[in-house]
Design a binder for these strands. Structure first.
Length: 568
RNA sequence: GGCUGGGUAGCUCAGCUGGUUAGAGCGCACGACUCAUAAUCGUGAGGUCGGGAGUUCAAGUCUCCCCCCCGCCA
């Protein structure tokens, strides 16, 4: 039995995530966690909301709430949606939790002791009326290049020219619109990542089994241009983790907090501490290599935009601290999911968001389609047609109908008990042999976290049941040789139970319904298919479940297409 | 402009360290079956693997050049 620590990228607090975010980390991490649990491994699956930074402050302001209150509310919403999608986190924490404050300050102090923190004086735009420093993108004005009057301080959206906030003509605060701005000096801490470039590079180079997407992004940041740069780890904000040194406020940085990218990944550890406090478990045996974590396999899931932080910044924090923290073993990264030929857009209301999705259809529908189309090797695309076709064909026709035809046939020709009589013959043995092979392939793909291939193999396992049934034709055999038909149906009923067990990682709710209908007490991962085919003995009572999946009609699909097209 | 990733059947994608007639699912055509959510099963049509040059006995698979898409960065 292995011990596997799984973390899913932390969703930012300011709003509900769309399907692209969902398939980029939480859904695949859940499939992997469920599978590994199913195989009997000790799994800890952790996530949290990423709550600090200006966007959170501004979203709270817009909502007319104190930021702490806003975050608490949004955390509850996101936790609820995760549950709605059956994401089985052991704990869904918050980066604003006291545990994260303590850990983050501890890391910064350790890095400082290691000589990896420097103080840097910067010049930044200060808004007198807002009483705060403005990040580049919160300064707006007229573009000196093209005259566009809503250019941002980092870039003009109209002519795409890169800008410095001080380049803008008539700059104003994007928050209040105030033009009462001035350039002020401000002191910040930098993490001296440059010094760690060799160490990080060596580490990345040694990870030969990682997805190309992960390593290529990491190498780009390591080697591009002047190579890995030092980065600021503090900000002039109220909402965040106070900067300390030797347990006391850092002299000269009393009004500052850590920059969100610094404290967020530490949130993985903090959320584990939260979990331990709540459950009475020990978090150190998952995170401290001097306390048992040396034999943990740590796997992270994230979208490609998060890769630099997980391959470089966070490891720099871990390694630089000089303390025995657990470093990630495998980074599974994903490309983007597009929506009907474009991008998902929060501002334009384009695409489907997690709350809307659950209002439309149960989570299994989304889980199945998203996972079987997840953007592993390149960006992939959500279209309503593809979604309709995938759900109808795979879930309703192949799996759902299999359960339906078998249970209903048995009820009408025998009873709602596994029929006795006859025995398995060469046809059954051939099916079992085929399924043994497919089961091994499924397991191999799951171990490798090849989500799409796993889904394809699972589907092939479902199809094999229909193939068998079609060839065996118990409805015809029954007329001449009821005993033979009984054996065939006995096998088919056992297939339903097996399918439920194997399908649990992808479609947990349907799997549960199938197990209940089969009245199955054994839901353990099968040692062998042959053995699994006698789990439900003759005489075992079952019930005919309602259809597992309803089909999506053309009308419904067209309606959705129109409703979520966005206003862009 | 620099750099990832990608460009393989109508659609969505597999194709590892180069090696028999390039694969799957969907869609389409035809056939079988009629237990089942008009579901299922079988057969078939369909691709000069973005373009060009090269290496090799042999190239979607390696090298170089070019074109196009997505994204990141300047």
């Amino acid at each position: 039995m292995a011990r596997i620590l799984i973390t899913s990228a932390l969703p930012y607090i300011n709003g509900i995530k769309h399907l692209g975010n969902l398939i980029g980390s939480q859904l695949p991490s859940d499939v992997y966690a469920r599978y590994m649990r199913g195989r009997g491994h000790e799994v800890l699956h952790i996530c949290a909301t990423d709550e600090h930074g200006s966007p959170a402050e501004l979203a709270a302001k817009k909502a007319g709430q104190p930021v702490a209150e806003y975050c608490a509310e949004m955390h509850a919403v996101q936790a609820d949606l995760a549950r709605g999608f059956r994401i089985g986190f052991d704990h869904f924490g918050r980066t604003s939790d006291p545990a994260n404050h303590k850990l983050t300050q501890g890391f910064a102090e350790a890095l400082d002791r290691a000589g990896l923190i420097s103080e840097v004086v910067e010049h930044q735009i200060y808004s007198v009326d807002d009483a705060r420093f403005l990040a580049d993108r919160y300064v707006e004005g007229t573009c000196p290049n093209c005259g566009y009057d809503r250019a941002r301080g980092d870039q003009c959206e109209n002519c795409t020219k890169q800008l410095d906030p001080t380049d803008l003509i008539e700059p104003r605060s994007a928050i209040s619109g105030s033009t009462n701005l001035e350039v002020r000096e401000t002191r910040h801490l930098h993490l001296r990542q440059k010094q760690m470039r060799g160490q990080l590079s060596e580490w990345i180079e040694s990870r030969t089994d990682w997805p190309v997407l992960t390593t290529s992004i990491a190498k780009k940041w390591l080697n591009d241009g002047d190579g890995l740069q030092d980065r600021g780890i503090t900000r002039d904000l109220d909402w965040g983790i106070k900067v300390t040194r030797n347990g006391a406020p850092w002299p000269g940085l009393e009004d500052k907090v850590f920059y969100v990218w610094f404290d967020a990944p530490i949130g993985y550890i903090a959320a584990t501490v939260e979990w331990a406090d709540k459950t009475g478990n020990d978090w150190k045996r998952w995170w401290r290599t001097d306390a048992g974590a040396q034999d943990v396999k740590y796997v992270q899931f994230m979208g490609k935009d998060n890769v630099p932080f997980h391959t470089l910044s966070f490891p720099a924090t871990i390694l630089g601290s000089g303390e025995p923290w657990k470093l990630v073993d495998y980074i599974k990264s994903f490309n983007y999911l597009n929506y009907e030929g474009g991008q998902f857009s929060t501002s334009l209301g384009r695409g489907v968001f997690m709350d809307q999705a659950l209002d439309i259809l149960p989570s299994d529908y989304w889980r199945w389609w998203l996972l079987s189309h997840c953007p592993e090797t390149s960006d992939s695309e959500f279209t309503w047609e593809s979604f309709q076709s995938g759900v109808n064909k795979d879930l309703a026709d192949v799996l759902g109908n299999f359960v339906s035809r078998v249970t209903k046939f048995c009820r009408s020709k025998f009873s709602e008990e596994v029929p006795s009589g006859g025995q398995y013959g060469p046809e059954e043995d051939a099916l079992i042999a085929d399924l043994e092979t497919r089961l091994k392939a499924y397991e191999t793909h799951m171990e490798a976290i090849d989500i799409r291939k796993s889904a394809a193999e699972l589907r092939a396992i479902w199809v094999a049941g229909n193939e068998y049934l079609q060839a065996a034709a118990p409805w015809a055999v029954f007329k001449e040789d009821p005993d033979r038909a009984a054996a065939q149906i006995r096998l088919a009923l056992n297939l339903i139970r097996l399918y439920a067990v194997l399908s649990k990682p992808f479609i947990p709710d349907a799997a549960h319904t199938m197990l209940e209908a089969m009245n199955a007490t054994d839901a353990e991962w099968p040692e062998s298919v042959a053995e699994a085919m006698s789990a439900l003995p003759a005489g075992h009572a079952f019930t005919v479940p309602a259809n597992l999946f309803d089909k999506i009609t053309d009308e419904a699909r067209e309606e959705m297409q129109a409703r979520y097209a966005g206003k862009g």
